[in-house]
Design a protein around this nucleic acid. Sequence first.
RNA 1: GUGGCCAUGGUGAAGCGGUUAACACAUACGACUGUGACUCGUACAUACGAGGGUUCAAAUCCCUCUGGCCACCCCA
Length: 417
Amino acid sequence: MALKAVKGFNDILPDESRRWQYIEQTARRVFELNGFGEIRVPIVEKTELFSRSIGDATDIVEKEMYTFTDKGDNSVTLRPEGTAGVMRSFIENKIYALDPIAKLYYMGPMFRYERPQKGRYRQFHQIGAEITGVNDPLADAQLLNMLTLFFREISLTEPTLQINSLGCPECRPNYRRALQQFLQQRIETLCDDCKRRFTTNPLRTLDCKIPGCAEATAAAPSVLEHLCNECDNHFNSVKRYLDLSATPYSINSRMVRGLDYYTRTTFEMVTGLLGSQSAVAAGGRYDGLISQLGGPSIPGIGFAMGLERVALLLENKDFTSNPELFIATIGSSERDMAFTLMDGLLKSGIRVEMDCESKSLKSQMRRADKLKCRFSVVIGENEIATGKAVFKRMEDGLQSESALTVDGIKLLLGAVK
RNA sequence: GUGGCCAUGGUGAAGCGGUUAACACAUACGACUGUGACUCGUACAUACGAGGGUUCAAAUCCCUCUGGCCACCCCA
């Protein structure tokens, strides 16, 4: 039996790949416009980096990482997300020494051992961006504007922005306590998972989809009412900046995060078009992360988006491009001429195809049609003798004569456009 | 990790115990001698996800495995 790819690991074939390139190119353009520079970090990191940043008790670290011991007896892990590695590099290369304000973006594969589903694979790809060194809510708003601009630039209106604030280490415990008090009275109506979450991570009960839990937590206190003054001001400023730039958003006070490092502003770009994979991009502030990883006390904020999910939203868009000219030949000596001509045209940036196998004229024309070439030309004895040929516009059969030279053909292709 | 549905050629699929495994599209070549698209002809699964079993006989029934999709979970 023929070998197959590993479950959850996919091949990206040329048609799909064009879609990806479009997304990547647009991201690069929009991010560079906003002053971000690309950082390329390794795919493998020490396991400890992820357990320290993402959080020991999170699902990602507990059961989804591709962790193994290398031949030097080190525990290493295929990165399950991008921020940790970028921040490790930020600290290790002392990027902050030059300027604590760094604007970095990255793109590449991530790995999580999950049950594959549409829009969710074991090797998946993220494009992310981070801003370090700015506490001010202006940074939050700038990042959100950039994300919004990106989706506008790829002509998608579907994912919409939701924002929330999770508070800081000062005020979050208060909220946690208040929420637990609230849940205490209805703990019996909660599902088993939520009973467990009650102690481990009470905030998670808020987005449980079991009807009983949704009902029980419907009147739960909101994080936003428990923010300390600083966090409250911060969140209000973020909203004000978003209003100033007319960036559309809605507030979702029940939005929670799966990674432990988030503080204050959190956000998601959500869509209803991908079933249960509703988050297309997500992120937030992580003011404690850099120091937690042994770096200086520098704040940060960032997001990551799922390339597969964005690509899914772009599925009906066509990214194919067609050759300008197909050169068909009659005899073998004519192929020399055709080959030289093709070479010359390619060197001037014109997309040309010719037949490689000396097939019948009919097959060659069929191929020209199949490849959706804009023009075709037949080179035979007569053409060689006169140095001219008839070019046929495939769409309507219109014929025009031109010299069989690179310049002549360029002129023709330009003129008939 | 849990549950449900599914698995026939390049693609969409019919077949539900004995068939040359239908049909359509796609593909290749030709009819049309130096011109595609339309039309017509010919070719194209020893093969029904893999491995076992039941049977005189299996793509069709049973078991196991693998993969896909959907929901949960989790998350981008």
